[in-house]
Design a protein around this nucleic acid. Structure first.
Length: 1156
RNA sequence: CCGGAUGUGGUGAAAUUGGUAGACACGUCAGACUUAGGAUCUGAUGCCGUAAGGUGUGGGGGUUCGAGUCCCUCCAUCCGGACCA
C-alpha cells in the first residue's frame, strides 16, 4: 500500500473538524498550557511559506504538550483593522470590510490545509463590534485612570479629583509654579474646561498635539515608510510635518515597570536589550545655560552703559546694527527690575485666570515682551514714564510694526494705569483675548497643551540641555538644538537667519527615519551663544538634525572629546575641541570613557569622570540652574490615526472638552462609508460624515456635541487579544476573571522580532494596566517568547540584452536575447563581447539569414526577476517562461549552456514584486501537509533567518515515504482502492531487540529535548536517523513503531493519525465519541536510560591537538591505564618517533591528547 | 546613524558544557534494478594532492594541551527604528 498523503490528510482534517477534537475547555483537571502565535494581519497577498514557520513550531509544541498531558489553548484569529485594507479600498473601490472578509477566508483556507490544531471556536476578529466594544471599553478605563507616582500604579481619575479638591496640587518641596501647581481653592474656582485640561495632563489616555507626515497633494497623513526622500511613495508629492491633535497613551508612566518586568519573563537577551534600549532610561541632569549675544563686545553707542546681564545683552547684539535704541530699551529694563505694576498684573494674569496662559518676560524674535499670551498672539507691555522721549517713540512704533508683522497684537499700558485702575486694564486684556481668539479661531486647549520646554510661566531666555555626562561640562565646545526647538526663531541672528531658514526647510522635508539614518553631517550656526555657567565661556549654539526635539530637552551640550557624534560635528564645522581627558583623547577619535581623570575642568580637575558626575549635579542643583533628571527615550504612544478602518473612539467633544461615553453606549460602531477620502483639515474620513459626528446635546441645548473622528491604531486591538481568546464570546466582560485566572500568562508566544518594541511593549503595558485595575492577576502577558526568523526569498534572475538585427530580406528588428548565467559571468569578467555577439548571431541565424547584428556594446546584460515557480533549482523552464506574463517574452531568444538556461540567484525579502514568493498551498498539494510542516522545520533553527529553497523538500518527503515503509510494503502494482491493509501490512508483535530499543530510546530522548528547546530541525533529522536505522535493522515491530509514531505525531499529525489507526486494526476513522482512539490523546513515550547505556567509548587520540588515531576503551579506565594503552598504539608510536610525551591528557568520555 | 542578529562545503545546516568539524538532508558523480524514471536501492562527495600528507568554520591577533565555541579587533550580510502590522 502506498503512502497516499492526499487522501489521508483530507480524511483526517475532516474527521478532526467534525469531531471538534481541538476544542478546548476552560475547565479541566489537567495543567494548563497557553501557546500563542502573534496575531496575523490578514493581508491580501495571502500566506507565503515564511508565514507558517512560527505557526508550525507552535503547533508542534501544542500537540507535544497535549500528548504530555496538558490542557492546551492554541487559538488563532485576525488583527483585521489596518491601513492596507483602507489603501486597497481607495485604490480599488472595495470596502475594507469586504476585502478583509475575503482575505480572512483565504487565510483560513490556507491555514486549514496545513493541519493546525487551533480551536476555531475561539477565533477573534478585531474589526467585529463584539470585539472592539471591549477595545473601546479598555480605552475608557485608560481615559478614566491616572498613574499615581506614589503607588506606582494606575488609579481611577476620581481619586485624583478628590485629591485636588482636598489638597490641590502643591509641590512637596521646591517652588510653587503657577500654571503647574494650584491650591484646592484655585481648583474649585477653575472652570469645567480648566479642570478638564488639568485632568488631561494625567489621564493614561489623553489628548495632545503631535507631528505627522502630511501630504497636501494626497490630502492625507502618511506612515513613515510611505515617505521616501521627503516625498510620498505614491505619486512623489511633497510631505511636510504637520501638528495635529492626537490621542496618546501615557506609556512613559509605565517605563520603569516595563523595564523591571523584563526580569520576570523568559525572552531572549536580544529582545530584552531591544526593549531596554527602546525605553532608553538614562540618568543625567538638566542644566540651564544663559544666552549670550556674541564673542566680542560691540562698541557702546552713545556711551551708554552696557548691561551686565548677558541675557538682555544678547538681544541688543542680535538686533539690527542700526537699532542702537534697543540698547536703551534694555538698559532701561535692566534698571527697572520687576516693577510694582508688572507684579500686580502678573498676579492677576498668571495661572490661566483669564482663560489663557500667559508668559512673563518672554522673548519674541529678539524682543522681550513683558507679558505674552502665546496662544492668542497677544502681547502686553507695561511702560514707565519716558515714552514721550522722541527716540523711544520711534522705537516703540517700530516695535509695534514688527509685532504686527508677526501677527501679534500689542496692548500697551502705563505703570499708573495698571496700579490705579487694575480692573479696567484686566477687562481690556480680557476682551483683547476674546478678540484675538475669534481672529485665530484657536481654542484654549491648543495653547494649554502645546509643549513648553522652557518651563512654566517664566520667560527667561536660557537654554536647557539634557546630558547624561554632567562630568564633561568643561569640555562643552558647542550646543546643538533640534531644528524644531522653541528657541530657534528667537535666538537666530539676522546674519544667520537665511541659513537657518534654509536648513529648517530642508529638515522639515525629511522623515525622522531619514534624519537618524543620515550619515552626512549637517547643521547650521544660529549666531547665538550660550554661557557656560561655571566658567563663563561663550559657547556657540548650532542647529542640527541629529538632535531630536522629542528627547530630553531637545538640546544637547556638544562635548567633542567624549562623544563620537559631537566629535564628527566639531571636526566637520571646524569647531575647536577642548580636551578634558588628557591622553585618553588622541585628537583622532572621541573617547566616551568614564575612567579618565579630568583636566581643564576647574573645580573637578583631577577627579575621575564617574565620580565627577555626582559632584557636578550637586553643584548644579545648589546653584539653582538645573537638577538631576531621569530621562526616557521612549515617548508616549500616539494612539489616534486619521483613518477610517479602525476602532472609533468612545469620546464626544463639547465645548472643546472630551467626554467619555458610558459603557452602555458601547460599542461605538464604525459607520459604513463608501468613499474613504480624507476629511477636511487633515482629519480622517469619518469627519465627512456630518450626521454621524453631530449628536444632540445631552442637556438638550441642541448642537455642539461632536464625536471624535480619529480612529484607533492597529495595535489597539492587538494589545489585549490574548485575553479575549480565553473567553471569546463573553458579552458582559472583555474576559471573565475566572477564565483569565485559569489560563493566566501565555506560556509560549511565537512571533517575529519586528514586533519587538511596538506590539510587545504596548500589550505589556495594557496588561499591567488591567492588572492595576484588579481585572487580571498577571502583570506580564507572556511568560516565554520565541522569535522566529524571517524566511527570505531566493530570487531567480534572467539576463537579457536587447539586440537589433536585420535580415537580408526584411527591415531591421529588435529582440531580447536572454543569456544563461555562464555567459553573463563571462561578459562581466572578461569583456568578451565579441564572442557573445557571435553567439547571438548563431542563435538568430538559425531562423533567418542575417544581414546585420548590433549588440549594444558596453551595455551589460540586464537582470530581471523570474518567477521562482517556473525555475527548477536554477534551471529555467523556458516554455513556461515564454508563456509567463501573458507572453511578454514569447518571442525572446535564448543563449543556453549545455542545453539549459541557468538563472542567477540572490537572496532578498520575500515579496510578490520580486516574484520569489512560494505559496504553501502549492507545496501542500504536491507533497502533503506533513511533508511541508516537517520541511519548514528542517530548514534550520526557528529563530534564524534563512532563504527559502523548495529543492530540499524532496528529502523530507522521501523520509516520510521511508517511514511509511516501516509499516507497509509498497507494491509496484496498483492495488484496488479500499482494500485497506492486507498482506502489505508489515507490523508484527515480536519482541524488540536491544539494538532496536536503543534506537527507539535514543530517539525519544532526542525528540523530547529538541522539542522542548525548539530545535525542530535536529528533531526532524533524529526521525530520519531513526527511520534509516530501523530500516537497516528491518524492524517492523509494534513495540518500537507505536511509540515512535506518537513522537512523530506533533510534527506530522496526518500520517501519524493514519498509521495509528492502522496499528489499532481500524482502517477507517473511529466513529463519534471514539476520540480515545485518536493519536491526539495517546500518551507520550517515556525515555528509559537502561536501553541506551554504553560501556565503551571510541576515543579520538590526538597528538598535539590533532586527531591521529582512535581507541575504543572501557568507560571506567583510569588515567594510568589510558597512558599505558595509548603509548602502545602503533600510530601514536609513529608520531612520537621515539620521544617521550610531555603530558597525556585524558578526559573521560571525551578524548585523549598526547602532548609531545 | 542607533539598536539587534548572523557569518561553517556547491546549498540548507549539525556540533547542547572549550574536546573526532561538516551529523541529517539537497545537489553532484558512479553503480544496481527497470520497457521507462522526476520511483527505489547501494557507494562516493570540504578543499589541494595519485598517495603519504597538508589545509579548513568571514579576515587579523590572543588565551589554552586543545578554539566553530572564550577574549580583542576589523569586515560583510540581514532585520528593526515609533502612522505597515
Amino acid at each position: 500500500m502506498e503512502y497516499n498523503f492526499r487522501d489521508i490528510e483530507k480524511k483526517w482534517q475532516q474527521w478532526w473538524s467534525e469531531n471538534k477534537v481541538y476544542k478546548v475547555s476552560n475547565d479541566s483537571p489537567k495543567p494548563k498550557c497557553y501557546v500563542l502565535d502573534m496575531f496575523p494581519y490578514p493581508s491580501g497577498a495571502g500566506l507565503h511559506v515564511g508565514h507558517p514557520l512560527g505557526y508550525i513550531a507552535s503547533d508542534i509544541y501544542s500537540r507535544y504538550k497535549r500528548l504530555k498531558g496538558f490542557n492546551v489553548l492554541h487559538p488563532m484569529g485576525y488583527d483585521a483593522f489596518g491601513l492596507p485594507a483602507e489603501q486597497y479600498a481607495i485604490e480599488h473601490g472595495i470596502h475594507p470590510a469586504v476585502s478583509t472578509a475575503a482575505n480572512i477566508k483565504n487565510f483560513r483556507s490556507q491555514l486549514d490545509k496545513i493541519g493546525f490544531c487551533y480551536d476555531w471556536d475561539r477565533e477573534v476578529n478585531t474589526s467585529k463590534p463584539g470585539y472592539y466594544k471591549w477595545t473601546q471599553w479598555i480605552f475608557l478605563q485608560l481615559f478614566n485612570s491616572y498613574f499615581c507616582h506614589t503607588e506606582k500604579k494606575a488609579l481611577p481619575i476620581s481619586k485624583l479629583i478628590k485629591k485636588y479638591e482636598e489638597k490641590g496640587a502643591v509641590p512637596k518641596t521646591g517652588e510653587f509654579i503657577p500654571g503647574k501647581h494650584f491650591t484646592a481653592e484655585q481648583w474649585k474656582a477653575f472652570s469645567e474646561k480648566e479642570k478638564a485640561d488639568v485632568l488631561m495632563r494625567r489621564r493614561l489616555a489623553y489628548c495632545g498635539y503631535g507631528e505627522v507626515n502630511w501630504c497636501e497633494a494626497l490630502g492625507t497623513v502618511l506612515a513613515n515608510d510611505e515617505v521616501v526622500n521627503g516625498v510620498s511613495e505614491r505619486g512623489g508629492h511633497p510631505v511636510v510635518k504637520k501638528t495635529l491633535r492626537q490621542w496618546y497613551l501615557r506609556i512613559t508612566e509605565y517605563a520603569d515597570r516595563l523595564l523591571e518586568g523584563l526580569d520576570k519573563v523568559d525572552f531572549s537577551d536580544a529582545m530584552k536589550e531591544m526593549q531596554t534600549n527602546w525605553i532608553g532610561k538614562s540618568t543625567g541632569a538638566e542644566i540651564d545655560f544663559k544666552l549670550w549675544g556674541g564673542a566680542s563686545p560691540l562698541p557702546s553707542p552713545g556711551g551708554e552703559e552696557i548691561s551686565q546681564d548677558p541675557v538682555k545683552e544678547k538681544f541688543f547684539r542680535t538686533a539690527d546694527s542700526g537699532n542702537w535704541h534697543i540698547l536703551k530699551k534694555y538698559g532701561r529694563e535692566n534698571r527697572k527690575d520687576p516693577t510694582e505694576a508688572e507684579d500686580i498684573l502678573w498676579q492677576r494674569l498668571r495661572n490661566n485666570q483669564l482663560g489663557a496662559k500667559v508668559r512673563r518676560q518672554h522673548a519674541i524674535q529678539g524682543y522681550i515682551a513683558d507679558f505674552v499670551f502665546l496662544e492668542v498672539k497677544l502681547v502686553i507691555e507695561v511702560d514707565g514714564e519716558y515714552h514721550n522721549e522722541e527716540e523711544q517713540k520711534i522705537y516703540d512704533d517700530a516695535r509695534t510694526k514688527f509685532l504686527n508683522e508677526f501677527g501679534l497684537q500689542l496692548l500697551r499700558f502705563t505703570n499708573e494705569e495698571v496700579i490705579s485702575n487694575t480692573e479696567k486694564v484686566i477687562n481690556e486684556i480680557k476682551s483683547s483675548i476674546e478678540q484675538q481668539r475669534q481672529k485665530f479661531k484657536t481654542t484654549a486647549a491648543d495653547g494649554e497643551l502645546s509643549p513648553s520646554p522652557q518651563g512654566e510661566g517664566r520667560g527667561e531666555a536660557k537654554l536647557r540641555v539634557y546630558t547624561t555626562r554632567p562630568d564633561t561640562i568643561f569640555g562643552v565646545d558647542f550646543m546643538v538644538i533640534a531644528p524644531e526647538h522653541e528657541l530657534v526663531e528667537e535666538i537666530t541672528t539676522d546674519e544667520q537667519k537665511q541659513a537657518v531658514d534654509e536648513y529648517i526647510a530642508y529638515v522639515k522635508s525629511r522623515s525622522e527615519r531619514e534624519r537618524m539614518a543620515e550619515k552626512k553631517i549637517s547643521g547650521v550656526f544660529t549666531g547665538a551663544y550660550a554661557l557656560n555657567p561655571f566658567n563663563g565661556r561663550e559657547i556657540p549654539i548650532w542647529i542640527s538634525e541629529y538632535v531630536l526635539a522629542g528627547y530630553g530637552t531637545g538640546a544637547i551640550m556638544g562635548v567633542p572629546c567624549g562623544d563620537e557624534r559631537d566629535h564628527r560635528f566639531a571636526k566637520h564645522f571646524n569647531i575647536p575641541i577642548t580636551n578634558i581627558i588628557g591622553e585618553y583623547y588622541t585628537g583622532e577619535d572621541a573617547n566616551p570613557t568614564y575612567d579618565a581623570v579630568l583636566e581643564n575642568s576647574d573645580f573637578i580637575n583631577g577627579m575621575k569622570m564617574k565620580d565627577a558626575i555626582d559632584v557636578v549635579v550637586r553643584k548644579v542643583e545648589e546653584m539653582g540652574i538645573g537638577q538631576r533628571k531621569v530621562n526616557y527615550k521612549m515617548r508616549d504612544a500616539a494612539f489616534s490615526r486619521q483613518r477610517y478602518w479602525g476602532e472609533p473612539f468612545p469620546i464626544v467633544w463639547k465645548n472643546e472638552i472630551a467626554y467619555p461615553l458610558s459603557e452602555s453606549e458601547l460599542p461605538v460602531e464604525l459607520p459604513h462609508m463608501d468613499d474613504l477620502k480624507p476629511g477636511p483639515d487633515a482629519q480622517g474620513p469619518l469627519a465627512n460624515l456630518t450626521e454621524w459626528i453631530n449628536l444632540p446635546s445631552p442637556s438638550g441645548e441642541g448642537l455642539g456635541v461632536r464625536r471624535e473622528v480619529n480612529t484607533m491604531p492597529g495595535y489597539a486591538g492587538s494589545s489585549w487579544y490574548f485575553l479575549r481568546y480565553m473567553d471569546p464570546d463573553n458579552e458582559k466582560e472583555f474576559c471573565s476573571r475566572k477564565a483569565a485566572d485559569y489560563w493566566g500568562q501565555v506560556d509560549l508566544y511565537i512571533g517575529g522580532t519586528e514586533h519587538a518594541v511596538g506590539h510587545l511593549l504596548y500589550s505589556r503595558m495594557w496588561t499591567k494596566f488591567l492588572f492595576d485595575l484588579g481585572l487580571i492577576e498577571h502583570d506580564e502577558p507572556y511568560k516565554r517568547l520565541v522569535n522566529q526568523g524571517m524566511i527570505q526569498g531566493s530570487s531567480r534572475f534572467a539576463y537579457f540584452l536587447t539586440v537589433n538585427y536585420s535580415s537580408l530580406n526584411s527591415e531591421s528588428k529588435s529582440t531580447r536575447v536572454f543569456l544563461s548565467k555562464k555567459w553573463v559571468d563571462i561578459i562581466e569578467s572578461d569583456n568578451t563581447q565579441k564572442f557573445i555577439s557571435e553567439k547571438i548571431s548563431e542563435v538568430l541565424g538559425k531562423k533567418i539569414a542575417l544581414h546585420h547584428v548590433d549588440v549594444s556594446y558596453g551595455e551589460k546584460p540586464i537582470p530581471t526577476h523570474v518567477d521562482v515557480n517556473i525555475v527548477d533549482g536554477v534551471e529555467l523552464d523556458i516554455e513556461a517562461f515564454k508563456r509567463w506574463r501573458s507572453g511578454e517574452y514569447a518571442n525572446a531568444e535564448f543563449i543556453l549552456e549545455d542545453g539549459k538556461y541557468i538563472c542567477g540567484v540572490e537572496t532578498e525579502k520575500m515579496s510578490k514584486s520580486k516574484f520569489n514568493t512560494v505559496n504553501p498551498d502549492d507545496l501542500v498539494m504536491k507533497y502533503g501537509a506533513d511533508t511541508f510542516r516537517m520541511y519548514e522545520m528542517f530548514l534550520g533553527p526557528v529563530e534564524m533567518s534563512k532563504p527559502w529553497d523548495t529543492k530540499g523538500i524532496e528529502g523530507v518527503h522521501r523520509f516520510l515515504k521511508k517511514f511509511w515503509r516501516l509499516f507497509f510494503k509498497e507494491s509496484n502494482s496498483p492495488s484496488p482502492q479500499g482494500e485497506g491493509r492486507g498482506e502489505a501490512f508489515l507490523v508484527t508483535n515480536d519482541e524488540p531487540t536491544a539494538e532496536e530499543l536503543k534506537v527507539l530510546h535514543n530517539t525519544i530522548r532526542k525528540i523530547e529535548s529538541d522539542t522542548e528547546r525548539f530545535s525542530f530541525n535536529t528533531g526532524v533529522s533524529a526521525f530520519m536517523i531513526a527511520t534509516n536505522e530501523l530500516t537497516d535493522l528491518k524492524c517492523h515491530k509494534r513495540k518500537i513503531l507505536e511509540p515512535l509514531l506518537i513522537l512523530l505525531a506533533p510534527y506530522a499529525p496526518h500520517i501519524s493519525e493514519e498509521l495509528y489507526a492502522q496499528l489499532r486494526n481500524s482502517p477507517s476513522p473511529p466513529g463519534e465519541g471514539g476520540g480515545e482512539a485518536s493519536i491526539l490523546n495517546a500518551s507520550y513515550p517515556v525515555f528509559e536510560d537502561k536501553y541506551v547505556k554504553e560501556t565503551t567509548k571510541a576515543y579520538p587520540v590526538a597528538i598535539n591537538g590533532k586527531t591521529r588515531s582512535e581507541l575504543t576503551l572501557s568507560l571506567d579506565v583510569t588515567q594510568e591505564q589510558v597512558e599505558q594503552i595509548v603509548l602502545q598504539d602503533p600510530i601514536v608510536q609513529k608520531w612520537l618517533d621515539g620521544k617521550t610525551p610531555k603530558k597525556i591528557i585524558y578526559v573521560k568520555n571525551k578524548m585523549i591528547n598526547v602532548v609531545i
